[in-house]
Every structure is written in C-alpha cells, then in structure tokens.
C-alpha cells in the first residue's frame, strides 16, 4: 500500500476532525481509497471518513489492508509535516508498522516516521440508504457558531426544519436560546447558500456535545449537509469535492 498527498494540510485536518471523538481506529485501504468507520466510546455517534483514491497525487493498494492506528499518535506524526509538505504513507503486507514520509516541495527536507500498528477489533455497522425527510445545506461556519453559541445555555439542541427555515433551540439552568436560519440563495457565492429541502417537517433533539465534536471538521469544507428524518440518526456530512467526505451520524434523544 502506498498513497501520496501533495499537501499534508487535508490529512492533518481530517485527523483533527475525528481524533477527539474516536481514539483508536482501523483505516481500511482498498484500491478505491482509504476509509474508516468508528463509533465513539459511548456508542452514540458514528464517524465515516472516505478518502477516494482519485483525491491522491498517487495511490496504489495491491492487497486490501486494515491498519489499526491510534489517531492521537497519527496526529503527533502529522504535526511533524508542514502544511505544504507532501505526505507519503507506506505499508507492506504483514508488516506491523506504517511509514510516513514528508517532503518539502523544494525537496531540501525529507522526514520519515514509523508508527506501530495496533490490533483493533472493529465492529462495522451497516448504514442503510435513507430517504431523509429534510436536508439542509448551509455554511459549515454557521453550524459551528450555532452549536457553540447554544452550548452556553443547554446540553441539548432541538433542530426543527420547516419549509423555509430551520430552528435550533436549547434551554438550560440560566435560560433559553434559539437560532433561526432562513433559506437564502446565492448564485455568485454558493458556499454561503442555505438550502432547505423538506419532504416532511422534522423535529429532533441531540446532545450538543457531539455536534461540537462534529464541527471540528468545518476547516475541511465550506458547506455542511444536515440530513434528518424523525426518530432516525442525524447525518452531518462535510463534503470534500474530489477527495471524499466525513460523515458523522448521531443518535437522537428520545422522549421517555
């Protein structure tokens, strides 16, 4: 297995976006790309990352391999790469290590690190194709700000989607808060658009703690997609055009 990115920045951001939610995980490498699927320790959220082979500078995977890695260790290794350095990952069949090589574009500096692989028992969950009742596309910075603001007032957020707006509400000991975002088009700046596709109205409650973990992926993508159906996990997708995506799934809170 050998995969090379032109710039380390994307991989650094991907690891930063998931390492606090899932500690150790397996990267599954096939000839179509690298992916990981992992739950958080309390089994409330699920993370699915896909890095497509087309998104790499070069990519080769002769035999499918599952590499168990501590994401905190991977983050440490990637700290040694400059944002503009190229990154090459190498793993040989049956080897218990993965190699990282960072090279500056002027080629005057090359650094190499070897990370021990771990044995990880991963439980893979089947994620069914879902026809969602409401899909909201919005700037990822808006979602990050909304979740951070509401976290000051409560632990949970109720997201309600109607035809032309989406409402985020919370309440806590000191009071209540809500943020309403209305659909807005923007032909010259599609990344600032708020688009609401509503088949059925939806209202779901989630723990803000997890949404705040998810919005760590905001540096990877200008836009985010929230896909919701009543009594179904929320899917928060950060698309990375031509590269792949990070999808987070979060189980809703249900009335007792």
């Amino acid at each position: 297995f050998e995969a090379k990115w032109d710039h380390a920045s994307t991989l650094k951001k991907v690891i930063d976006a998931v390492k606090d939610l899932i500690g150790d995980t397996s990267w599954d490498c096939t000839n179509t790309g690298m992916s990981l699927q992992s739950m958080d320790s309390s089994h409330v959220a699920l993370v699915h990352v896909l890095l497509k082979s087309e998104g790499f500078e070069s990519y080769r995977c002769d035999r499918n391999v599952s590499m168990g890695i501590s994401l905190n260790s991977m983050a440490k290794v990637l700290k040694c790469a400059g944002n503009d350095d190229s990154v090459t990952l190498r793993h040989e069949s049956e080897s218990s290590v993965v190699n990282f090589a960072f090279e500056s574009h002027k080629e005057e500096r090359v650094s190499e690190f070897e990370l021990k692989l771990m044995n990880i028992d991963t439980e893979h969950l089947g994620i069914p194709e879902t026809e969602y009742d409401s899909i909201i596309k919005m700037p990822s910075a808006d979602l990050r700000r909304t979740c951070a603001d509401l976290s000051q007032f409560g632990d949970s957020v109720t997201i309600s989607c109607a035809k032309s707006d989406v409402r985020f509400e919370t309440s806590g000991d000191i009071g209540t808060g809500n943020v309403r975002l209305s659909a807005r088009g923007s032909s010259d700046k599609p990344e600032t658009e708020i688009a609401i596709e509503m088949i059925n109205p939806v209202s779901l409650t989630f723990a803000l703690k997890y949404l705040n973990f998810f919005t760590k992926a905001a540096p990877l993508s200008d836009t985010v997609k929230l896909c919701m159906s009543n009594n179904h996990p929320l899917c928060v997708e950060f698309p990375m055009p031509e590269v792949g995506y990070i999808r987070y799934y979060l189980a809703p809170k249900i009335d007792e």
Partner: peptide, 14 residues
C-alpha cells in the same frame, strides 16, 4: 425528559 439513544439501536452490525 429525554433519553439518549445509542447509534447501535439504528444501525445493525455487519
């Protein structure tokens, strides 16, 4: 009061 459900209640092990 609302209770946090688990993701494993929605997605099945493969």
């Amino acid at each position: 009061d609302s209770k946090q459900s688990k993701i494993t209640a929605f997605f099945v092990k493969t």
